[in-house]
């Protein structure tokens, strides 16, 4: 089956690019048409957007990484700042 003029490989690149800049109209239409016919590329797109959304939420990062400065590091930075103040 022919998926209009863009191959799956090309579409996978265009979908990634569309997350970084606004593609020209004919490309966006090309993607749309291709996606209508190709469930694998639809899946791929959904998955990229999913990863994007997980990484995007700043909250995720802050919740996940509850790490704090170690007492040693804190002390070291404090000393350096004291030095600077003099």
């Amino acid at each position: 089956m022919r998926h209009w003029i863009f191959s799956c490989k090309k579409i996978s690149l265009l979908i990634s690019e569309s997350m970084d800049w606004k593609l020209p109209l004919y490309r966006r239409l090309g993607i749309k048409l291709h996606l209508m016919m190709c469930y694998l590329c639809r899946r791929y797109k959904k998955q990229l957007l999913f990863i994007h959304s997980i990484l995007q939420s700043e909250k995720t990062i802050e919740e996940i990484d509850s790490a704090s400065l170690s007492p040693e590091a804190r002390e070291k930075i404090k000393k350096r700042l004291e030095q600077e103040k003099q």
Binding site: I61, E62, D65, S66, A67, S68, L69, S70, A73, R74, K76, I77, R80, L81
Partner: peptide, 24 residues
């Protein structure tokens, strides 16, 4: 704000020593 800065840095450079340096 030490911890806030540290967390912010660590999420981006992915290495705790570098993150500590960046806070300093």
């Amino acid at each position: 704000y030490g911890d806030t800065l540290y967390r912010f840095a660590r999420a981006r450079v992915r290495d705790s020593f570098t993150a500590e340096d960046l806070v300093q």
